[in-house]
Design a protein around this nucleic acid. Structure first.
Lengths: 345, 345
DNA sequence: TTGTAAGCGTTATCAT
DNA sequence: ATGATAACGCTTACAA
């Protein structure tokens, strides 16, 4: 930061042209250049042409930050997810991106594993650089942290436990999905049904566990804590848990994983141990990520419209930004459906 | 744009605090606030405390765009990919993100399907908002288009056919990977090996096709145009192509898809038609995306270190930005390796 | 140790 | 139809 030569960190090449350079070259004022470029006022045709030529020659591109400063809009929307990796997030990003492009917005993506400071940092970095924010924070406390900021930049929460009535929240029917899947297993004769849980502080995981328990209770099957295995939504956790399940006595006849990644890890373990699926043990997952139908055997799962979730979140955000969203539409719950394939009868 | 009340599109809540508000509240000058916040100069401890308190009370967050304007750095890096969807891009983003976080940068992601205007628009939108750019444009012309801009913002090209010596380019060994896979098939007795090609203008696709042909020629097997089926890297294309392959007479004994998505589509088609894999027809793909090992039968593929590709691209960019990258390291080629699973003998 | 003030590159409000 | 010029919110010489 010694010499005062902005935008010159990239050593080679001439200094980037500004609107003043264009104005000088076209022999007009900067105001006229701005009007010509944005169609924001009357400009004579030949003046406009002179400006266009100068822009071409100088390879002028308007400076985004400067523009944002005065217009107070950045034309970008922030997206903060727990991770950018894996099919689930890939699908969600796809949905978000599709809507964003349609509305002409750029996306500022960031991942924040659930360290509180990390997520706070990402938020600060985004602030002032985005016109709105989509935030997914299944961890309880984080969601509350962000709820305080809702008066600054419009925020839409995905699958986050936010209580405030005036927060924009979109969730999926975790409880209902898990409930119906377990009911389905019971109806097919299963009585000892194990579950691989998600992370302890994860809201989705908690809801799915609740659905599992309620289904058992409503079916007159006793809940057994030993059948509730700890997991963390990773493939590795599912792999480990399945090994544990096989050692239980009596052995469960069905295994419900709180997400597909763990179910797929479990399938690997079961194949390794020679346990036939679904004959010896039925397996079901949650999310219905695209791979689910390709694994062997094809995985039964609770279908979540993941891309649509992202799409709807973006629509909600766009509505919030224009202020056109009425109070009634602030909370959206997307339904989940059962997809029964060969991994469970 | 009628009333002059910046940053007020979000109706409710008080106006966002600026550094002046903080200065007034802390009874110091804006310069002192800035110094206190950035540790960019001497500030007495109790002054610093007063500032911190004011920041807290007013919920002040510095305005990113304003800061960028003066410092001429945005702390974000742009990433422009053909698509944000699918396992391949998910993995690449993961690698990029990992490195970016380590270096303290935000990511501005955008997808541009290969319409020339679309990609140009995305670039303009990013310009001035990013300190550097990672760009993946397998389409020939686009890469050339961007090569012109290399003197403005540092750009790293992934898998893009850019000729200029001074461009930063990172690619994978497409030709070698395809070559070795086809050689492997030949060594296992296959003589009639069909290929499902990628898009016509796609550089990766062209290189992989070249590898396929060279391997056949070097093995003394004649190339047969009828065995080169058109595809476009989508699952659907693979599905269609496999149906065509089954109708060929004599029927090929092996099918090499130019990427895994098409190979997986082909597997579906073959299963539907009752063609046993690998007994009747061997199948191999390219990329080795995470699903590959889970499909049935597990798919042989040319392994590409996808996440690493993103990581290296980011490292290259960071080097380019600090000017520390020497001329020698401007072009990187990552090796590919064979992963033989049960879909091919 | 602190304050004053000059920008950064753009858009918007006036005159003309 | 065009030109001056004042913002926008921040950082940073330079002066005190």
């Amino acid at each position: 930061m010694s010499t005062r030569s902005p935008r010159s960190r990239h050593p080679e090449g001439p200094r980037q042209a500004t609107i003043r350079d264009v104005a000088r070259a076209a022999r007009v004022s900067v105001a006229t250049v701005s009007r010509a470029l944005n169609d924001s006022g009357p400009v004579r045709d030949d003046t406009r042409r002179r400006v266009r030529d100068a822009v071409q020659n100088l390879r002028f591109t308007p400076h985004g930050a400067a523009r944002s400063l005065i217009t107070s809009r950045t034309n970008t929307l922030g997206v903060l997810l727990p991770d950018l990796y894996g099919e689930f997030f890939s699908e969600i990003i796809r949905g978000i991106d599709r809507e964003a492009q349609r509305a002409g917005y750029q996306l500022l993506l960031s991942s924040a594993r659930n360290a509180r400071d990390e997520i706070k940092g990402a938020f600060r970095a985004m602030y002032g650089c985005v016109d709105g924010l989509i935030l997914m924070a299944p961890d309880v406390e984080l969601a509350e942290l962000f709820a305080q900021h809702r008066d600054r930049t419009p925020i839409v929460f995905i699958n986050s436990p936010v209580e405030s009535d005036d927060a924009y929240v979109i969730t999926i029917d975790n409880h209902g999905g898990a409930y119906r899947m377990v009911k389905h297993l019971v109806q097919n004769g299963h009585r000892r049904i194990a579950i691989i849980r998600g992370g302890n502080r994860n809201h989705d995981a908690a809801e799915r566990l609740r659905g599992y328990r309620d289904a058992l209770i409503d079916s007159g099957v006793a809940c057994d804590p030993r059948l509730e295995l700890q997991g963390d939504f990773t493939e590795a956790a599912g792999y480990r848990a399945a090994h544990t399940v096989l050692k239980l006595d009596p052995r469960p006849t069905a295994l419900f994983a709180a997400n597909d990644a763990m179910a797929i890890g479990a399938l690997s373990a079961l194949r390794e141990e020679g346990a036939a699926v679904p004959e010896e043990i039925a397996v079901a997952g949650f999310d219905d990520i695209p791979i689910a139908r390709y694994v062997s055997p094809p995985l039964s799962s609770v279908h979540v419209p993941i891309a649509r979730l992202g799409e709807r979140a973006m629509k909600l955000l766009l509505g919030a930004m224009t202020g056109s969203a009425n109070g009634a539409g602030r909370r959206v719950v997307l339904p989940t459906t059962l997809v029964i394939r060969t991994s469970s009868p």
